[in-house]
Write a protein that binds this DNA or RNA. Structure first.
Lengths: 113, 113
DNA sequence: TAAAAATATAATAATATTTGAATATATTTA
DNA sequence: TAAATATATTCAAATATTATTATATTTTTA
């Protein structure tokens, strides 16, 4: 399993609009590169570069089917992560029991200094 | 609520070891900057820059308590995201019913071309 | 009111990421 | 075997991110 540090690097790799779209396609199932071209408005070499990055970080893999390369997901955190990105959340977390700036109310929790 | 595009940008902002550590501290509760300094091995100005980035992206906010600034979480996706990063996963997702390279077995799913 | 404490900002340098253009590779088909 | 198809690689330019150093701001305390 990946360490926390590796997971953070994974986040960085994933945090790009094109790569998120690629992954969204791949959670649905195997896709070859030309399938992906239809959904993504990027050049073929650029798509290939994004695929290589995801491949190098063990997020996806492919098998060869004639002259097609068929990509699929291998990193198990991805489906959960994509789901999380679409989950509904309330606007903001409740702040601490004290007003910003005004300084009224008490400071919640410990502090040293 | 944030759009998917904004969520992806949020991922990018979060995907840094120092900023993840900051957020891990803040899910526990309010912390002032000098509290954070004890946990993070970065210079004060650098910490301040990371805080500013998180602030500018509406991930955290603070209130002023004398000469302290007390930071807290406001972005509601953060606790779930941090939990996800620590979740246990099996090594890899099951590949499609076909061997890479060997080309044996059938190609799963539709394809056009 | 001057010094100290807590934190922020600005400027810079180093490094990393992203894209585009050109070219390469591998497989199939004519 | 040459052409066509599908995909990858390389290089360079543009841009973004990160950390460092120096300095600024604000509030409290002596």
């Amino acid at each position: 399993m990946r360490s926390l540090g590796q997971r953070i690097e994974l986040l960085r790799v994933i945090a790009h609009p094109v790569r998120i779209k690629i992954l969204e396609e791949l959670v649905e199932g195997v896709k070859c590169v030309s399938d992906l071209t239809e959904f993504l408005e990027v050049s073929q070499p650029n798509l290939s570069q994004h695929l290589a990055l995801l491949r190098n970080h063990r997020v996806i893999d492919y098998y060869i089917d004639g002259r097609l390369k068929c990509y699929f997901l291998v990193e198990p955190i991805i489906p959960d992560l994509l789901e999380l990105l679409k989950k509904n959340y309330r606007e903001q977390l409740p702040g601490p029991e004290c007003c910003p700036i005004t300084k009224k109310g008490k400071y919640p929790g410990e502090r040293r200094r």
